[in-house]
């Protein structure tokens, strides 16, 4: 009887295994999967190592750079006012490029176009610090990315990538993060992949890291060839994930195990 039930259960699982998107009411931040200790680390600003990067970002915000000899603050003034809620709308459509750019991409566009400085390398301390500082101004603000109608085709492309099986393990993002988020993988929670706290401090990385780094790590995990940093595919995936998490509050800088 038990075996029959099991078989019935497995068959049901298999029949719903494709693209069962998570209902709004069941969406959960990665925070809710963490241990009490890790939650405490994120909750207290003097215990959260991500705040060290935010402090650096605040310094960089005011530092003049490039041949224009301008600081971010010279145009945008006080980030606590001008950047409030901004990160919630990223990735956003960039008319000049005709495609979406994420927050890191926007910062680097500002550097090349307005500061006339060289762009920061992906995952450099400077870029992480500045993006953490900007995103932290949106802490608690609901994610609102993907509203722009011009973004619709890119959200759809991101969704296709999310559903696409790939790599030697032949898995799509959805197979874990839509279908099995309530289970564990090697003792760790799988989570829903809601990007609420990026850039975030991962204890495993012993550093802050961007959403692109997280995505690349996941893609390597399914033994597929990861897209390059800054590639349109990664930005489209970011965009889809953000639109999927629309309405969830931003936690930057979050802490994750």
């Amino acid at each position: 009887m038990k075996i029959a039930l099991c078989i019935a259960f497995v068959t049901t699982m298999a029949s719903v295994a494709f693209a069962t998107e998570i209902p709004q009411s069941e969406r959960r931040s990665g925070y809710s999967f963490m241990s009490a200790d890790t939650k405490a680390m994120q909750d207290e600003d003097t215990a959260n190592p991500g705040m060290l990067f935010v402090l650096d970002g605040e310094t960089l915000w005011k530092r003049k750079a490039g041949s224009a000899d301008k600081a971010c603050a010279d145009c945008h003034n006080d980030a606590r006012v001008s950047m409030k809620g901004i990160a919630a709308h990223y990735p956003a459509f960039e008319k000049a490029l005709g495609r979406p750019v994420d927050l890191e991409g926007r910062i680097n566009l500002c550097r090349t176009n307005h500061q006339q400085a060289s762009p920061f390398a992906y995952e450099s301390r400077e870029l992480l610090a500045l993006s953490a500082y900007v995103a932290q101004q949106s802490r608690g603000v609901p994610i609102a990315a993907g509203d722009d109608p011009e973004l619709a085709p890119f959200v759809e492309k991101g969704r296709e990538l999310f559903m696409q099986r790939q790599g030697q393990l032949n898995l799509g993002c959805t197979n874990c993060h839509d279908d099995n988020w309530d289970k564990k993988l090697a003792g760790s929670a799988i989570t829903q992949g809601q990007p609420t706290g990026y850039p975030l401090y991962r204890l495993e990385w012993q550093s802050l890291g961007s959403l692109q780094r997280r995505l690349r790590a996941c893609i390597t995990g399914i033994r597929a060839q990861a897209y390059d940093y800054g590639s349109p595919e990664l930005v489209e995936l970011e965009l889809y994930l953000k639109s999927r998490a629309r309405g969830m509050p931003i936690e930057t800088p979050a802490v994750r195990p």
Partner: peptide
């Protein structure tokens, strides 16, 4: 850019 956070 070393920085410290202190809680006293």
């Amino acid at each position: 850019m070393p920085s410290a956070l202190i809680n006293v």
